[in-house]
Design a protein around this nucleic acid. Structure first.
Lengths: 343, 343
DNA sequence: GGGCAAGCCGTAAACGCTTACCGACAATGC
DNA sequence: GCATTGTCGGTAAGCGTTTACGGCTTGCCC
């Protein structure tokens, strides 16, 4: 089953079939319809490989992520797939598992499949690998870890604003003993969040704050929170570098026999799906994966036309108020003051 | 950059380069090495589309799932990708979103990309769509919803054994008032679990049990549990059709001011990652997505050689004991009896 | 009515690889 | 020494599209 059979049935040349498939305007309406009928009658699907060979475009976009089982990513992948398919493109997903060897493998997979562009949404990638793409003039888009240049764009998430909103909220509830559970310091986004936390406290004249480092996983959050609770003094509010960490912290708090938010308030970051269903539902800073995916795809898909100038994109964050934050123990709400309202 | 340049540099023909790449044994070691050097020197990656055109094999396998944001799937996708890449194959993931229109789109995407096989891991699919694959002799593998025949295999999960293990565990803890929160009855796997529950209770001479229907999501589990708790009598143990439902049930129980497992024991099904981190950690029936993925891939990858006889595969389940189950209120452990032990 | 432009469509040459077939050569047997 | 066999590697014909180029109609104008 190929374009020739369609051509024969429709009594046209293969070129005309190709043109109708590709929506060229150089074909009469009638001819087009005749071809369409033939296509449907035969149940013909054009062979994408041959199309790719002939046209030089694979209509395939690579999406390199760290680990699909990390709840941050599924939504991102889905949105990316959605918008790609809407535009008649296909997606190749590859997990690096945070492993440099596998990263190399991911790059080679992309190269072999001749993708038209790659979204790199994982921790830092070796610049030698990156240049493999750049040498072949393949458009790239990074999340946080890149710099805009010819054919490569970068998406900057406004982590600072998110952290600031969270701190504002917590401080507004009367908290002054505020801790932060950071992510692995090798991650740029984790470092940015941690630094933003320091800046926010300093700006409000609150001490340096308490700090522990987790691993952006539940267990790391659990252990970090346990360390925090074993100190002489304990914080009345905890910000976590991501939601997984916050979930781990919740567990550690319960194990100590304390309550959230009565004894300790907890704020997460990311707004992964499960955060709405923890006990209590987690107040967190939402980072729209949908928006990231859409911006990323647009950046890649548009790269060819736009003469390939890379752009710096910005993605905002927003505070989502749920049940894990409340007034600091021993304080009373100022009348007329702002209260946390669950959504 | 193509195979011809490599051939020129290595002073051989394109055929020899191709043979080296494909590991043919019709090339001397020396020649092979010469070609390898040329490939590395040029940083050459063979064009997979051209390979596919020439050989008739795309080295691409389709994986149709319901929704990657459903925590059941990421692990499945990852394992499938892992084993595919190990074997030099690539994966195309497509979400149906439980939407018939999108299902059709998924099928057409697979057809256009000329996949070498498709794993269909979603709710029932229209037989007209399925025959699109069968007409083209594309191997298929289903999860629960198929029947083995030429070129199509089926993976049967032993849900009944899983449910039985869970009931055995619960009954062993002295429970007699046991409820079941079912999944959507349009899902075969949900129906099987529900029926297995009935059979298990009947076999042990315990009444019909209580039943509510959820939607396999957290909110459905929450509502179903709330309905259960608003009855005159309440169960002392609840089995949920999947972990998401169980998590929703946990929330509803807490909102009533009850404790798990002191007042009510809860058992999930699937063992999704987050189940280990709920409060308390969820006792559940593990369904190894890794095993499903590996079996599915093997079934597809082997289909061509094995003259394409479809096979019926079986996947076992196993009970994972955590903290959400305990003795029925008002009963005492029999000395020497089995106790739930957290893992 | 002849010339011309525009619109449609067909011809055929890529695209980069695989592979059937064949030839060259060396090793072997007689 | 010659025929035979086997091994290695080259030649070239696909695979199913796209697309540059060119040819045929048609309509229009002078």
């Amino acid at each position: 089953m190929n374009i020739r059979e369609v051509a024969r049935l429709a009594k046209v040349s293969t070129a005309t079939v190709s043109r109708t498939i590709n929506g060229s305007d150089k074909v009469t309406r009638e001819t087009k319809e005749r071809v369409q009928r033939a296509i449907e009658e035969l149940g013909f699907y054009p062979n994408t490989w041959a199309r790719a060979l002939g046209s030089g475009r694979s209509s395939l976009y690579g999406l390199i992520i760290s680990d699909i089982t990390n709840p941050f990513f599924p939504e991102l992948v889905k949105s990316f797939e959605d918008i790609a398919v809407e535009n008649g493109q296909e997606v190749l997903v590859a997990n690096t598992n945070y492993d440099p060897v596998r990263m190399k493998l991911c790059v080679s997979r992309m190269l072999q499949r001749k993708v038209d562009g790659v979204a790199i949404m994982t921790s830092e990638m070796d610049s030698r690998l990156i240049s493999e793409f750049q040498n072949r003039a393949i458009p790239l888009v990074f999340l946080d870890t890149g710099t805009a240049q010819k054919l490569t764009s970068n998406i900057m998430v406004d982590y600072a604003a998110g952290v600031d909103a969270a701190v504002e909220h917590i401080v507004g509830l009367g908290h002054t003993e505020i801790a932060f559970i950071a992510g692995p310091s090798m991650l740029r986004s984790a470092r940015v969040r941690k630094e933003a936390f320091h800046v926010c406290l300093a700006r409000r004249g609150i001490g340096a704050g308490w700090m522990e480092e987790g691993n952006h996983q539940v267990d790391g959050g659990h252990e970090a929170m346990a360390r925090l609770l074993s100190r002489k003094m304990r914080p009345t509010a905890v910000l976590a570098s991501n939601d997984m960490t916050a979930i781990g912290a919740l567990g550690a708090i319960y194990e100590r026999g304390l309550r959230v938010p009565e004894d300790i308030s907890v704020v997460g970051f990311d707004d992964i799906q499960i955060s709405a269903f923890t006990q209590p539902a987690l107040t967190t800073v939402r980072l729209s994966r949908d928006e990231i995916a859409r911006v990323a795809f647009r950046a890649l898909y548009g790269a060819r036309q736009d003469s390939g100038v890379g752009t710096e994109y910005a993605v905002a964050t927003s505070l989502v108020l749920r049940r894990s934050t409340g007034r600091a123990p021993g304080t009373r709400a100022k009348t007329g003051g702002l209260e946390a309202v669950a959504i």
